[in-house]
């Protein structure tokens, strides 16, 4: 009984990570944009939705008490907007400038989460966020199943839309831009604008995921959106297979399972006073895994169908 509830809880979180991963796949897998600020885009979505849906509070701006669905939409729009600004600034430049700038925005937004207390609740964040299915919250199992069902439904819906988009003319041109920018340009396609569209779409999906996650776990705090999260999501996508939406979902579940298992293993093996220290080993495992995959199986467990991305190819020998 308890296991089933935990299993549902675990899978629901894995589903929210799957959504983030699908968003990242639009940016990286389909378009080749390296976003090092995933946590920031997820976080801004979470905070936006919280601001929109929580009841009015005395010591905080807002609390507009709007329905959860409105919060989700607002989250996606807000993350999309921030993505637009970041993308418009850097997408024209060499690829690693986007990486550096997104890394920077993650740090800047983390500071905002911590310091804009009237808006974000400061380091302690905001609790008692309205949850979906709160009417059945007393029945833990049923509540978890209902949430899992909703999260899974969302994953499936986003998956279907993204697959459809990938097969549409837009998706094909996007891949063409990624594989051979000059050729795509000569066909009259504007690579910068296409990339920007993909970056915004991916960011919006991450923001939505942040909102879904926040409403499921019931609180937001700056510590939920550390670079650690960015790193986990990247490991998920690279392990699962960049460019493949199924791979993104599979990777999210797999890496989240490895994370949860290694976490409980550490709490078994190490005495309580050493656990914080030992938890850093979890990160080492994921970091080494990421590097090993990049070295030995860069296409991931489930490779992209069409062709293996040129990013991984044997091109110029130096």
């Amino acid at each position: 009984m308890e296991y089933l509830a935990y299993g549902a809880f675990f899978l629901t979180l894995a589903m929210t990570y799957s959504i983030i991963c699908l968003g990242l796949n639009v940016q990286w897998g389909q378009t080749g944009l390296f976003n090092v600020g995933v946590a920031a885009f997820v976080g801004i979505g979470a905070y936006t939705s919280v601001l929109l849906t929580t009841p009015e509070t005395a010591d905080r701006v807002g609390g507009f008490d709007l329905p959860i669905a409105v919060g989700w939409i607002g989250a996606a729009l807000m993350s999309g907007l921030i993505s637009f600004f970041v993308g418009a600034l850097t997408i024209r430049m060499r690829s690693d400038y986007l990486a550096i700038t997104t890394f920077g925005i993650a740090i800047a937004l983390q500071l905002c989460f911590q310091n804009l207390e009237p808006l974000t609740g400061g380091v302690f964040g905001v609790g008692f966020i309205p949850r979906a299915f709160s009417g059945i919250q007393d029945d833990a199992l049923l509540f978890n199943y209902a949430n899992l069902g909703l999260a899974t439904l969302l994953v499936v819906a986003i998956y279907v839309v993204l697959e459809h988009l990938a097969r549409s003319p837009w998706g094909r041109v996007l891949r063409a831009v990624r594989e051979d920018e000059t050729a795509a340009q000569s066909l009259g396609k504007n690579p910068t604008s296409l990339r920007l569209q993909a970056f915004v779409l991916g960011g919006a999906i991450m923001g939505l995921a942040g909102a879904v996650q926040a409403h499921f776990i019931g609180f937001v705090a700056p510590a939920n959106y550390l670079p650690m999260m960015t790193f986990q999501v990247w490991a998920m996508l690279i392990v699962g297979g960049s460019g493949n939406n199924k791979g993104a979902i599979f990777g999210a579940v797999l890496v989240w399972a490895i994370w949860a298992l290694s976490g409980s293993l550490i709490s078994e093996l190490f005495p309580p006073d050493q656990q914080a220290r030992a938890a850093s080993l979890q990160i080492v495992i994921i970091g080494v895994m990421l590097c090993l995959i990049l070295l030995w199986r860069p296409q991931g467990v489930l490779p992209e169908r069409q062709s293996i991305s040129k990013h991984l190819g044997q091109r110029n020998e130096t």
Partner: peptide, 29 residues
């Protein structure tokens, strides 16, 4: 290794990102 395989710049950047997380956590451990 990545250079020899002709991997794109951005793959090497990503590897450095993964390595940095691992290096930092080893220090913490």
């Amino acid at each position: 290794q990545l250079r020899r395989r002709g991997a794109d710049t951005i793959i090497i950047v990503m590897a450095s990102f993964g390595a940095s997380m691992a290096l930092r956590s080893v220090l913490e451990f």
